[in-house]
Nucleic acid binder design. Sequence first.
DNA 1: CGGGATTTGTCCGTATGTATC
DNA 2: TGATACATACGGACAAATCCC
Lengths: 243, 243
Amino acid sequence: MSTVIDPISRPARSTQLRPREVAERIKQYILHNRLKPGDALPTEAELCAAVGASRSSVREAIRILTALDIVEVRHGYGTYVGKLSLAALVESLTFRGLLSRDDDFRVLAELIEVRQTLEQGLASAITSALDQDLHRELSRLADQMDERARAGQTFIEQDREFHLLLMRPLGNELVAQLTAAFWDVHAIVAPALHTTPASVRETVAAHHAIVEALFTRDLDRFTEAIAAHYAPVRRHLKENRGL
Amino acid sequence: MSTVIDPISRPARSTQLRPREVAERIKQYILHNRLKPGDALPTEAELCAAVGASRSSVREAIRILTALDIVEVRHGYGTYVGKLSLAALVESLTFRGLLSRDDDFRVLAELIEVRQTLEQGLASAITSALDQDLHRELSRLADQMDERARAGQTFIEQDREFHLLLMRPLGNELVAQLTAAFWDVHAIVAPALHTTPASVRETVAAHHAIVEALFTRDLDRFTEAIAAHYAPVRRHLKENRGL
DNA sequence: CGGGATTTGTCCGTATGTATC
DNA sequence: TGATACATACGGACAAATCCC
């Protein structure tokens, strides 16, 4: 390894606590050495020596960084640079959503507005970058949802895939990951919020409408279809407002 | 405390590691007892006894939860429920941005698209909910930026406040926090990306244009002004594309 | 297939710093 | 100021997992 973490540069006191200090050093180490996800990091013992801290502190620092998916630990093997996903966002938002769930689903209502805004706001970019294969795939997913709904089954996997594919043509990794993160939070906080037969039919129809609007490249209809897609959940939220 | 964390319910081994297990227990404890930010949690010793784990494991679990701002620790006093902010999103996104900075600022470019989409997509909701006080405040901030720019000073505080106030009338806490988080990431990853005199003038003018569009409630002009606001950074990113 | 080496996981005991009363 | 309760940090010991020969 080229760059070394200089041991105990600071003289004595610091406002920062020890593990956070170490975590910062490790992040700097990754940046300075231009490591990428999957690359190996020094062992715990090496980190202790390099940074001049005990193993406990180093381990707590590693825990912080694993929570952020900045590092990844394989038991008995080594520590590596993490996937840099938005797992932390999912966990923290999910927790907030679960905490507010007993009250009024406030977080969920706000989440829906964000999801809808993103999908509607990116409509023109999506339609202009959409290719035929992708459109066929979306159509196929909508059909699958239809079939499963008629058979009384859920279709969460298809729904997740649908909304992810919708964003794919943008080539924007951040948008894709935010979409996935928000979807996951939604699914955990409201696992079965819109399961009345009428709502399910409405949701399925909305997915079909989205596909249709994409095919004709009709932005207004697309926007309407997205709004219709979230309408059932919005209605349910309003009804449970004064619980 | 009403609900107790049952000690070692699982019989033997688990695929889950100890600290993550403990972290999950602590989250469940908060949820079951309906604690809110600022409420006190059991001491480390009590948690150890309750969950049947050593201090090390409990401490590492607490570290994970502090990284997510789910718990907060006051040295020498106690541990409490955290503010449930999006600090984790800021830290993880910032790190991704810094890692990709040397290459092509990919993350920053994607971030700009998200910020612009949110602000433009929420335009109609913003204008319809905007009151006169807020409009005055936005106007004042734009003027301040103008003055500071003419004096050769930076205006990052004013810029941050401006974009936060823009979202305030929505009353959507999640949107507000996402806006703040994305702004912070942007500021850290691109601390001085658009500092040429011409770009600064352009940015200031865009803020004025946003205020103007809000005053006349002209959605098209608002959308244009937002696009103009991010234009300098986009241009700079394109120029540095093939570094 | 087995065994040894390496690395992370967990625990304990102790000393220290810090905030509250 | 002192006493108390608490989190912080360290070092050592042993267990568990993984890899390689």
